[in-house]
Design a protein around this nucleic acid. Structure first.
Lengths: 180, 180
DNA sequence: GTGGCTCCATACGGTGCCGTATGGAAGCGA
DNA sequence: TCGCTTCCATACGGCACCGTATGGAGCCAC
């Protein structure tokens, strides 16, 4: 068996799905075991505790949904297109796992990951705004504004979608206002 | 004894405090009873169930932190000052109870209140933008952008304050960008 | 001062989760 | 074939919470 067993992977994937659908409370040993059709005996073979699963799940999210997309978007030449691509995601495919993690920042590992993601994303956007000619300080502030709008819109998309209305029109409006 | 007993009020106030500090999970019968130095016997005299307390707590928040401030700010003549006042709160006094409620939208009463608050606030800001000369549709979109930024910034203030940096400078930047 | 009302304490059963202990089935190498 | 490792099932104790049942202390009316 490989060092990182494939069945441990199975638990981690199920945990990320459960996080998206039911929040961190759903990343729980016995509910997941039921969903997977096994018992806790399996879980405690692969993991030391529930905390270890949570840490693994958060790390998995960070790889797949923070670092991955950021590296992919970095390949885009035009800083304007780069920003569009990032901000557009909030409307097209709302980052539901991310919002679930925001709901669970009382867990220290979650808070740390959320804070890292915020810093990485803001720094990334600030660099793009700098390439568009803004001063260093101004680019940072504009990135903070843009990221705040991103996070807030993701929340509204989940918690009050009927308030949001036409997503495409709003996306254009935001791009026009924040990117220009 | 008055129809709305003063001791029921005491439970509700404690519940709102607990919500702010520990999230909706802290709005629980036995922990609150311990904090108040009484037993569950008291609680189940004043309330039918935990759900009833949650509903009362959410309603209390809506009165004190949504409708109240909105009516107060409505007295401001200049629409620009009105918007400043609303958006400034996210930096000066982060709406921590509100964020806690966003964390708990799985509870139907919470989701309903959060959605109502969003619609009221967006409508209120849209009206202000309209007074500033924007068309109806454009004012609505600008209000959605501003409210998204408000919500997102409130989140960052709690979850990644070190990323946010100088609050006053950011407040000025946001006012300049979104209100003009 | 007695009956009734208000308010709360005590005590109990139930639920859903965490973590541990232990045994057993299946596969694999010698 | 036999022993060892891997992986999981079973069974248990513990904890934190919800809700109910019941009794009792204080107070007020009359």
């Amino acid at each position: 068996m490989t060092p990182d067993s494939l069945d441990r992977e199975r638990w981690e994937r199920a945990a990320l799905d459960a996080l998206e659908r039911g929040g961190l409370a759903a990343v729980a040993v016995e509910p997941l075991a039921r969903a997977l059709g096994v018992t806790k005996g399996s879980f405690y073979w692969h993991f030391k505790s529930r905390g270890e699963l949570i840490a693994a799940t958060v790390a998995r999210w960070e790889r797949l949904h923070v670092d991955g997309p950021l590296q992919a978007v970095a390949a885009i030449e035009d800083p304007r297109d780069r920003l569009m691509e990032l901000l557009g995601r909030a409307g097209a495919k709302p980052p539901s796992i991310f919002i679930r993690l925001l709901d669970a920042v009382d867990e220290p590992v979650v808070r740390a990951a959320v804070a890292r993601a915020a810093e990485e994303r803001v720094a990334f956007m600030a660099e793009a705004f700098r390439e568009l000619g803004l001063t260093r300080a101004r680019a940072r502030r504009q990135a903070l504004l843009a990221y705040s709008a991103y996070v807030g819109r993701a929340h509204l998309a989940r918690d009050a979608p009927q308030v949001l209305g036409d997503q495409a029109a709003l996306s254009r409006h935001i791009a026009e206002q924040l990117i220009g």
